[in-house]
């Protein structure tokens, strides 16, 4: 099932990526070659097979609810591209 150009634009938008028309063309062609390869999976008999989201049989792990150290506010903010008054600064969210 090939991906259409409109779908590709919409997916890129959802992923917060902006592609030029030239990049879109190239990616469209690459993606459809990769997706064609994926169609081989349709050959498998998978009815009734459970899904594996993990490699090993993992179970929920509960930690004791005890306070422990972490980054200080200064440390957490020290890598921020923009910070002010002890807070991360971002452009306008709501007009």
């Amino acid at each position: 099932m090939p991906i259409s150009m409109d779908e590709l634009r919409q997916i890129a938008d959802l992923a917060r990526l902006r592609l030029s028309d030239v990049e879109l063309e190239a990616m469209h062609s690459d993606l459809n070659r990769v997706l064609t390869h994926f169609t081989h999976l349709q050959e498998l008999q998978l009815a009734g097979v459970e899904v594996s989201a993990h490699a090993v049989d993992a179970q929920s792990v509960w930690d004791n609810d005890e306070p422990s150290g972490g980054l200080s506010r200064e440390q957490a903010l020290s890598s921020a591209p923009s910070a002010e008054s002890g807070l991360f600064l971002v452009p306008t969210i709501i007009e």
Partner: peptide, 9 residues
């Protein structure tokens, strides 16, 4: 979902 089933196999 199919890939996760194939992973099981």
């Amino acid at each position: 979902a199919k890939a996760c089933q194939a992973r099981t196999l």
